[in-house]
C-alpha cells in the first residue's frame, strides 16, 4: 500500500499541478493542524528568505504539488517514520536547496548509508530548530550514539555532559572525507584546533604523539584521568622496555613510577619538548 502511495506521489510530482492560492489555500484547512503554523516563526516560513520556500512554491516546495489533495484527499509528500518516501527521497527535498558547500560530502556520509533522514535530526515547523543549539544537538546525536553518551559520563571526558562542547566541534554530521567524519583531514589536526600547544613542531618529538593522539587518548572519555586509554605507568610500559627502570615491574604506591604523576614525574613534557636537553622529555 505504501508503494502505491509512493507511485501516486511520484506521478503527482511529475504532473506538477500546483495550487491556485499557495500557502493561503493550505492554511484554510491546516490552520487547525497542530504545529503547522509554527513554520511562519522560522526561517522557512519567512517570505524574505532569499530563494526560500515562501518566496517560491511555498508549502508545495516541500510537500509537492497539491493536485487533488483538496477535496479528494490525494496524498502529499510527508516526512518522518510514517512517510511512504524512503529516507533518501525525503532528503532529496531538503537537498534540492541545501546541496551546498557545508553539505558537500553528505552523499558519502555514514548517515546516508544508515538511511538517516534530515528530519530525524532537524525540525522545520518551529521558530528555531533545537539541533542548532549546543544542548539540542548533543541530545539529538546521543539518541542514536548511546555509547558516546555513556562515555561523556566517565571520570575524564570532554565537557559534552554539561553542553560546554557539542559533537560538531569535532565531527561534521553531514559527512566529511576524513575518517569518522572529522572536521579536519586527520585526527591530530582536529585536536590541534583547540590544543595547538601539542602541535609543535618540537625540537624533540614523541613519535606516537605526532602520529595519532588516539594512540594514548580516547577523545570520547575514559575512566582514567586525561582521557588516557590506560593509566600511567602501565600505558608507558606497553611501549617502553629500555634497560633500567622502564623495563621493571610497575611498583606499587611507594614507587616514583606510580605515585604522584607516575612516569610524568620526570618525563613531564610527554607531548614533545622544546628544551635543548629534552631528548627524554624531562625538561
Amino acid at each position: 500500500q505504501q508503494q502505491d502511495v509512493l507511485l501516486q506521489l511520484q506521478q503527482k510530482f511529475e504532473q506538477g499541478k500546483y495550487s491556485k492560492k499557495g500557502a493561503d489555500g493550505c492554511m484554510m484547512c491546516h490552520r487547525k493542524t497542530e504545529g503547522v503554523d509554527a513554520i511562519f516563526d522560522g526561517v522557512h516560513g519567512d517570505p524574505n528568505t532569499v530563494a526560500g520556500p515562501m518566496a517560491g512554491l511555498q508549502c508545495e516546495a516541500c510537500h509537492g504539488p497539491q493536485g487533488k489533495h483538496r477535496g479528494k484527499n490525494e496524498p502529499m509528500l510527508t516526512f518522518g517514520e510514517d512517510s511512504p518516501l524512503t529516507a533518501d527521497m525525503q532528503n532529496s527535498v531538503c537537498m534540492g536547496c541545501h546541496d551546498d558547500s557545508q553539505r558537500m560530502d553528505w552523499h558519502g556520509s555514514a548517515h546516508v548509508s544508515e538511511e538517516v533522514a534530515c528530519t530525524d535530526c532537524h525540525q522545520v515547523h518551529i521558530a528555531k530548530d533545537p539541533v542548532l543549539s549546543r544542548s539540542g544537538q548533543n541530545d539529538t546525536c546521543q539518541q542514536c550514539h548511546t555509547k558516546v553518551k555513556a562515555d561523556s559520563h566517565k571520570r575524564s571526558a570532554h565537557p559534552i555532559k554539561w553542553d560546554e562542547m557539542s559533537c560538531s566541534d569535532c565531527h561534521n554530521p553531514h559527512g566529511s572525507m576524513a575518517e569518522s567524519a572529522l572536521n579536519e583531514p586527520m585526527l591530530n589536526d582536529t585536536c590541534y584546533t583547540c590544543h595547538a600547544d601539542k602541535r609543535g613542531p618540537f625540537l624533540w618529538e614523541h613519535a606516537p604523539v605526532m602520529e595519532n593522539c588516539a594512540n594514548c587518548h580516547d577523545a570520547h572519555g575514559s575512566v582514567n584521568e586525561q582521557m588516557l586509554k590506560t593509566r600511567v605507568p602501565m600505558l608507558c610500559k606497553q611501549c617502553h622496555a629500555e634497560s633500567n627502570h622502564p623495563s621493571t615491574v610497575p611498583g606499587g604506591n611507594g614507587s616514583i613510577q606510580t605515585a604522584g604523576q607516575g612516569c610524568l614525574n620526570c618525563h613531564s613534557q610527554i607531548h614533545g619538548s622544546n628544551h635543548p636537553s629534552g631528548q627524554a622529555f624531562q625538561f
Partner: peptide, 9 residues
C-alpha cells in the same frame, strides 16, 4: 527519485 525543487515540473 528526486523530489527537490530543482527537479519539479
Amino acid at each position: 527519485f528526486d523530489f527537490g525543487v530543482p527537479a519539479a515540473n
